[in-house]
Amino acid sequence: MNKSLNIVDFSFIGHLNEQKLEVLLVEVKRFLENNIDDLRIKRRVYIVAVEALENIFRHTDSELRKQNKIKFSIKFENNSYILEFVNLVFCKNSEKIKKILFNIKNKSKEEIKELYKATITKAQISQKGGAGLGLIEIAKISDNNIDYKFKDIGADICEFILEVKFDMKTIK
């Protein structure tokens, strides 16, 4: 349930650095506290926001960092909470992300759990601090309610758009 009938959407457009990421996550937490009563949804939305934003922060190519103005929003529409993340990637690197997401999207809940187990038990933490679990965690927590697309904006640069939805009618 929303605390307010006229829920205010959350949106952010800008560059991310370590400090800005921290401030942004504090703002997200505050937004969720003020707008969502359901502890379960609040937690899930926060987990997705952290994992996706940390992924963007960690994996943005250094050559794109200056121009990578990321867009992030949380909105409530048709009884669903929808999180959207837009960031820039080199199109040549999009195939790798597509392959990971395609693999995740085609899995059942049980298969996602198996993938999570296989990944966490073998995970090595990278120099960037990731365990390769972020997207799997997002799929696990959202019942695989994820969608993505890559939009070519020229000069071998693509917008990577990731959408994660929590449908209040079907959520368990």
Partner: peptide, 10 residues
Amino acid sequence: GYFNSSSAKF
């Protein structure tokens, strides 16, 4: 409380 996926590994 909240723990991220890298923490989950640890």
